[in-house]
């Protein structure tokens, strides 16, 4: 893959080179799809939303001024498109309402996770992530996986910087608590 900046491919696309846009799709398809699947919690719907997002971004590429990064712009589009689908389907948000703050030993939790097979471990983490609120999942994914600065995340989800910090703090403790609830019975069964 080329190391040229996104702006190069955006300009090429605007000049009518659709193949240049294919490069941008290839670069961002995984993150766009992941954000969507974590919000709508359905693979088929997420795939459809992600495709629509890239088509929508293509038709509106002229309006992309370059004030923010292309990644921030497209993540924002997928975030709102996925939320729209949830609203339209009137899906019940099945996130867990957890008020207790995790105070347990993280080392024990990490050890317990490491004993599990890779496939099972990933499945448990995914299931636990899906129990968080939509915005919490998006914030955690963008911050820890994409390593996006908090300021850019605040642009994506349209929340203040302080609000993002609070949500991030709460979300990671909530995730640890959910994981503990899921793993504890499993480790007891192993003994």
């Amino acid at each position: 893959m080329s190391n040229k900046p996104d702006e190069y491919y955006i300009n090429q696309t605007l000049n009518g080179n659709v193949n240049a846009y294919a490069f941008l799709i290839e670069k961002y398809k995984h993150m766009v799809f992941t954000l969507s699947i974590r919000i709508v919690k359905n693979r088929e719907e997420a795939e459809e939303i992600s495709q629509d997002v890239f088509v929508k971004a293509y038709t509106n590429l002229k309006s992309f001024k370059g004030d923010s990064k292309f990644s921030t712009w497209i993540y924002k589009i997928v975030y709102y498109a996925s939320l729209d689908v949830i609203k339209r389907n009137k899906k019940q948000i099945n996130s867990e309402n957890i008020d207790e703050i995790y105070e347990g030993d993280l080392g024990v939790l990490q050890d317990a996770l490491s004993y599990l097979e890779e496939k099972e471990r990933k499945s448990i983490i995914k299931k636990s992530l899906l129990k968080l609120n939509e915005d919490e999942q998006v914030i955690l994914t963008l911050y820890y996986f994409e390593e996006m600065p908090l300021k850019e995340i605040s642009e994506v989800v349209n929340l203040s910087l302080d609000n993002i910090k609070v949500k991030l703090f709460r979300a990671r403790k909530k995730l640890a608590t959910i994981l503990e609830h899921v793993i504890e019975p499993k480790t007891i069964n192993l003994k």
Binding site: F33, S50, I125, L140
Partner: peptide, 11 residues
Amino acid sequence: YLLKDVGLEKP
């Protein structure tokens, strides 16, 4: 560690 371990979903 968790988020990196779980990675991204593939379309």
